[in-house]
Design a protein around this nucleic acid. Sequence first.
DNA 1: TGGCTATTTGGCTATATGGCCAAACACGAA
DNA 2: TTCGTGTTTGGCCATATAGCCAAATAGCCA
Lengths: 110, 110
Amino acid sequence: MKASLKPRYEARAKILKAMAHPSRLLIIEELQKQEWCVNELTEMVGADTSTVSKHLTVLKNAGLVADERRANCIYYRLRCPCILDFMECVEEVLAVSAKDHQKIMKCCKK
Amino acid sequence: MKASLKPRYEARAKILKAMAHPSRLLIIEELQKQEWCVNELTEMVGADTSTVSKHLTVLKNAGLVADERRANCIYYRLRCPCILDFMECVEEVLAVSAKDHQKIMKCCKK
DNA sequence: TGGCTATTTGGCTATATGGCCAAACACGAA
DNA sequence: TTCGTGTTTGGCCATATAGCCAAATAGCCA
């Protein structure tokens, strides 16, 4: 790979990697609606608080979320609304795959 | 996490995970322009053929690319053009992070 | 068929990740 | 300041990934 392109792809990969986990996708989706504190997100995810905290750190390091303390809770919010479009594309990939799968299924029934 | 949502997020995560690697992002970007065979992609990536072959398998399993043999080469092509939009969003995330970073830098200079 | 080239698979190692538990930390409120 | 709640960090283990090399496979073409 051309050395000049490497940092570019590494930066992008970091963001995608940060999103590439079921629990983190749930968190992202919930944060699209409104901000939530760690406690609330922990309940939604259904894992240990420390686990969710680490997921949030991953998202924060990737620049996807921001946090802010208010009273004695730390609230997280999404930093980029475009992530919604992102998911539309992911769904399209899934849809195309599903279509193929259907074809295969039909083919087998014959 | 609600059990009914789990498969949904797992499916999405699988796709994002498949994209979340510098070499695979390079491959995706090159395949946006035109189809290429393993050999050609190997040269672009600059890794062992077997490594690139495995990357392509990952992309194929995620439903992102399709392959087709012609003559004695196997050509790979993108299955979802929307991935381009995807990258625009990733770039936006990077841009926002960069902006913040600049702010921090400025702040420190004072 | 047999050889040749392109591609995939298996084996191995080093490294990264996710999960839980326990402990540390942060900070508002009494 | 001390308590208590909310959050993060460290430690540990099990599992997954990326990389290379070597070997196996696939299938075109003579």
